[in-house]
Design a protein around this nucleic acid. Structure first.
Lengths: 169, 169
DNA sequence: GCAAGTTAATTAACATGTTAATTGATTGCC
DNA sequence: GGCAATCAATTAACATGTTAATTAACTTGC
């Protein structure tokens, strides 16, 4: 790259080195996620769920009632986006809502029986697909990847990197 | 899916194990990307660029004229989404377009001088941020992560996992 | 050379990500 | 108690992801 003498010296033709490291990491993470999601997506679509709706169902399957902020943190979805998506799932009979008795500002959500049985199908298929994936990559390699990712996330600030103030556990 | 005896046996309360492996990988990749992007995003926003617009500029900085399909593959954006975003960048004077002389179906794009100098700023900052990140995580750890991700992407089908038929290089 | 099939790009329709503004409830402080 | 600051959730406005349909240009087979 140019030295100090070339101020805003953006070259003329194909200037920048084709091997920029900088933005390669976000891009690589994006590609990796896309590649993995292609395996899981058909199951979700068959059940009429988008990626995000699947994350919401999964997060709710692990708990009972949970408020919007905590849910946003768990499923890595912006609270503003949740406020729009949750009502859709309530209308479809997959989720139910009720205000927090302790704090009227908070709205809490939970799966309905229909929601649980729907997610049950997602879950069974997901386990199968993940197993196949582990076999294809090698369990050790997959473990190493999980650890690297965990270290990255922890090092960069953990869940704070997903939801602004997000106060969960 | 369930065996014959346990048909839609979705448990009642907080049924599913809190440690589902299946969907943890997509989620982890999503969190990791979010955490990393938080470092790069301010630079992009200062220049009035969204994440996706940044990816487009970066992809174009490495080549001269390129058609929409190839660009979609390079920046990991759906062709349909590109068709909507590119005109915006053209209107802002960052990109220019012209049809491919060999094949009138193809539309090719390239950075303008303004586009190059804008991306120059992104690039300089990105290198700095990435350097700091490598120092924080340890260069070796970052390298290991890159390799794990590359192996995952390759194993799952490479670029085919991003753009449908995508014919590049 | 022309009709059927294919391909590149665009458009439309809906769901989501993102940011800022709004509303209602709670907390702190006096 | 009451008012200012804060907080949870929502809403609005814009940009993007996703899928299907559309249009125009190429390709193939005959």
């Amino acid at each position: 790259m140019p030295k100090a003498t070339t101020r805003s010296a953006a070259p003329k033709a194909a200037p920048f080195p084709a091997q920029m490291m900088s933005r390669a990491l976000p891009m690589q993470l994006l590609r990796a996620r896309e590649a993995v999601m292609q395996r899981f997506r058909p199951t979700l679509r068959d059940l009429g769920l988008t990626d995000q709706q699947g994350r919401i169902m999964r997060a709710l399957a692990e708990v009972e009632w949970i408020d919007m902020m905590a849910l946003a943190g768990r499923c890595c979805i912006h609270p503003a986006s949740l406020s729009r998506t949750v009502p859709r799932l309530v209308a479809r009979g997959l989720l139910r809502r009720r205000p927090d008795p302790q704090d009227a500002r908070r709205m809490t959500v939970a799966l309905t029986a229909k929601g649980r049985s729907t997610f049950w199908n997602v879950w069974v298929e997901s386990e199968r697909i993940y197993g196949a994936l582990a076999e294809q990559l090698g369990a050790a390699n997959l473990e190493a990847l999980h650890r690297s990712l965990e270290a990255l996330i922890e090092s960069l600030g953990g869940d704070a990197a997903t939801v602004p103030p997000g106060g969960e556990e």
